[in-house]
Amino acid sequence: MRVAIFTDTFIPQVNGVARTVGRLAEALACRDIPCLVLSPDTGLQGKYPFEFNFSPGFDLPVYHECKLALPSYPGICKLMEQFRPDVVHLVTEFSMGLCGLKYSSSYRIPTVASYHTNFPEYLSYYRLAFLTNWVWKYMRWFHNQCLINYCPSEATLKQLEKKGIRSLDIWGRGIDTALFNPGKRDFLFGDRVGAAGKTLLLYVGRVAPEKDLDILMESLRILNAANRDVHLVITGDGPQADVLRREAPPNVTFTGYLHGEELAAVYASCDIFVFPSTTETYGNVVLEAMASGLPVVGAYSGGVKENLVNRFNGLTCRPRNPGDMAAAVLELIENKGLRSLLASQARSYTLTKSWESVFNKLIEGYCRAIAGGNKLISA
């Protein structure tokens, strides 16, 4: 089996899609499955066990962490002729994904796609809601040409089903419980952010309107008005970061993007993970927080519902309800026994989330697509 992956985001870019695709490429290589990743130029350097090919590209105007590629279709065809893929995996629906779809359709290569980002839902956050129906029409056209369409969560699958997208299946996510581990706690972290003795709340993710951070900041104001000793750590960056830095109260620390051991240490050094986003297709950071031994207080919406179980590994809130979020945080501050129980159960829950089984299922799907695609081609 030979796999070509078309994506508009790839490592070392900092987002859940890029990191998942990077893990996938490594997992295929570990199984001696030749893999070629085609993406915009992300600046990746060094030796890797998989092949990659970059196209020129430019930053998206409102999403600078991702690029829009300008691939040369004749060049891609020549590259594919040399690589000779058995299956094409389309990770994103724009530029590179569209190029991959044109190639696989033209040369009748079995094709699967995965849905990672709720772009249609993002539009309202950028005053572009009038485009929503058109974007869903495009998504239907794109995905319904693929043999399998993978979703990261049951909630996302149901959403796509309602929108008329067919051949849906679940491709979940795993977690590296060795990296994200309560043992990475830095007991001096609170001192360094000026929050010694305070309850440390943590948000990790893109700092952007679609993450509903206005709800998180309003929740913090409610907690501050109640004279609670809390301190919020925001780890990430994005278009809303400058505004939040200017407007945030003194008990907020912005770390910017962190990676690897630094990121793991921040997770393990905080007390409660707060996640207001209602637009997630999965929410990788929720699993990272749980693996680090943090109870999660999150909006019960979208892909977050895949892992957040109320009063088992965290507390759920009504979507976009700052009062609910503040009340849940307050309960965990006042009830340390509950907080400890939820933290322990959150960690135990993630120990069942193996990347190995996640990738094995996807590779089985590739085999089904190849078998099904070959039958269609021979017919």
Rank of each mutant, 00 (worst) to 15 (best):
residue 282 Y to Q: 14
residue 170 I to H: 09
residue 38 L to C: 15
residue 359 F to V: 01
residue 180 F to R: 05
residue 166 R to H: 06
residue 276 P to D: 06
residue 52 F to I: 08
residue 372 G to F: 09
residue 27 A to Y: 06
residue 56 P to C: 08
residue 362 L to I: 02
residue 345 Q to I: 08
residue 337 G to S: 13
residue 321 N to R: 13
residue 270 C to Y: 07
residue 7 T to Y: 02
residue 159 Q to M: 14
residue 375 K to R: 15
residue 45 Q to T: 11
residue 362 L to F: 03
residue 31 R to W: 03
residue 139 M to S: 08
residue 210 E to D: 14
residue 74 P to A: 11
residue 301 S to E: 04
residue 320 R to L: 00
residue 314 G to K: 13
residue 5 I to A: 01
residue 52 F to L: 04
residue 46 G to R: 08
residue 328 A to K: 12
residue 153 S to A: 14
residue 174 G to L: 09
residue 329 V to A: 05
residue 307 N to L: 00
residue 167 S to R: 15
residue 296 V to A: 03
residue 237 D to L: 07
residue 209 P to T: 09
residue 165 I to Y: 01
residue 363 I to C: 01
residue 351 L to N: 12
residue 147 L to E: 15
residue 196 A to M: 10
residue 112 V to K: 06
residue 324 D to C: 12
residue 278 T to C: 02
residue 346 A to M: 12
residue 296 V to N: 10
residue 48 Y to W: 12
residue 278 T to G: 03
residue 361 K to H: 13
residue 10 F to E: 09
residue 88 V to R: 07
residue 106 S to W: 07
residue 39 S to N: 11
residue 111 T to R: 04
residue 202 L to C: 07
residue 272 I to P: 03
residue 88 V to N: 02
residue 198 K to T: 05
residue 33 I to N: 13
residue 349 Y to M: 00
residue 227 N to D: 15
residue 125 Y to Q: 07
residue 123 L to G: 11
residue 75 G to A: 13
residue 333 I to H: 05
residue 197 G to H: 10
residue 212 D to N: 15
residue 260 G to V: 05
residue 95 S to G: 12
residue 211 K to S: 00
residue 274 V to L: 11
residue 352 T to I: 00
residue 174 G to E: 13
residue 93 E to V: 11
residue 228 R to S: 10
residue 25 A to Y: 05
residue 162 K to T: 12
residue 323 G to S: 04
residue 334 E to H: 10
residue 29 A to Y: 13
residue 82 Q to H: 13
residue 298 G to E: 03
residue 375 K to C: 05
residue 357 S to V: 09
residue 168 L to Q: 08
residue 249 P to D: 09
residue 284 N to K: 05
residue 378 S to A: 07
residue 210 E to Y: 11
residue 39 S to M: 11
residue 297 V to W: 05
residue 23 R to D: 14
residue 291 A to K: 06
residue 1 M to F: 08
residue 201 L to C: 06
residue 368 R to M: 01
residue 145 Q to M: 03
residue 156 T to H: 05
residue 270 C to N: 07
